[in-house]
Design a protein around this nucleic acid. Structure first.
Lengths: 182, 182
DNA sequence: CCCGCCTGTTTAGCATCATGGACAACAGGG
DNA sequence: CCCTGTTGTCCATGATGCTAAACAGGCGGG
């Protein structure tokens, strides 16, 4: 029962939306090697595997720590939030299903057309949030979705991400992140 | 600047007090391979590395997560304890320097010659303690030392360990562990 | 001393990995 | 349709990991 390096790598590559050739180019290896590794037809040397992961980038520790079976949920519909408040106080928990969360809070507001920048952000930690007003386009790795009021998100900040207000009115988000990057 | 797999493996082997040949036998590889890996003269395939670590045993994730530069202090002299109490209450903290501790308390007493068993203990979590009276021989991995009143210890319980009263009088220890094994 | 047993290191040779390039399949545009 | 680009897979060859066995040094006992 050996480690499924192939599946792990294929998963990582899928998350980041890279082709075998693109990853190979970034890592400085051949596309054939990526293919062979993903099919488990070779057991790469740790040197090679590190070169490949450097192209993502991702550390060997992260790679082997990766929980492959539980590809964590990224997007949450309005009804997928868990109400943990009571009475006058309504606390609707995002990513309540996800174990070992670690975060803190922000209230963001985006003018029409505004974005977090032309390039995607990447930093340590995790972040999540809820759209309060307006419509925001959120891109996380290879996935992208426009979220409206009541919808939410939660993902690892190490995955490249970008926010952009695609509506005509201001957009407000209640967001949280840890450890604090600002 | 690649990962120093060699040093990591050598460190792991030292902690568990295994020779290259002994580890090789348990892992089902040759002693020569262990030698070559530790000298960084080869970059082992993840398959081989996994086989080697299975002989410890240790997961690939643990191996790459290992904090190699900070080999945590195991033994503490009488004057290496940190006083955090005040007034009539004296709380002298063990391993105060160590970040991210996680534990709870016990008061142990060993009769002359008593020990925790013929085989070394291994379990999850961390444990530490202080000798109050008598003399106790503590073996942790490859290291061993006789501790007297005022001296202390703190280590990860995953390292094989054993207590034995080598004195003529009863021995008392204030110990702590987490998560609770008893 | 010599012997046996341990330690880690080295080397020749074989097995496996990694490369560079060819290949088929698929998609979008002219 | 062709053309051009993409995708992933496959193959021959050179590079490298891995094994088996020999080697050198250390340590204790006869």
């Amino acid at each position: 029962m050996s480690i499924d390096v192939g599946a792990r790598l294929r998963g990582v590559r899928a998350i980041y939306g890279l082709s075998q050739r693109e990853l190979a180019r970034r890592a400085g290896v051949t596309n054939g090697l990526i293919s062979l590794i993903e099919q488990n037809r070779v057991s790469p040397s740790v040197g090679s595997l590190k070169k490949v992961l450097d192209g993502v980038p991702m550390s060997l520790a992260e790679f082997f720590t990766l929980d492959i079976e539980a590809a964590p949920q990224v997007f949450y519909g309005d009804d997928e939030l868990v109400e943990i408040g009571s009475g006058d106080v309504s606390l609707r928990l995002v990513a309540a299903q996800r174990a070992a969360r670690q975060l803190s809070i922000l209230h963001e507001r985006y003018a029409p057309g505004a974005a977090t920048g032309d390039d995607a952000l990447t930093h340590r930690g995790e972040e999540g949030g809820v759209v309060v007003r307006g419509r925001i386009e959120l891109t996380v790795g290879a996935g992208s979705r426009v979220l409206g009021p009541g919808e939410a998100y939660y993902f690892s900040s190490t995955i490249p991400h970008r926010f952009r207000n695609v509506g005509r009115e201001p957009c407000e988000i209640i967001s949280a992140s840890a450890p604090p990057t600002f």
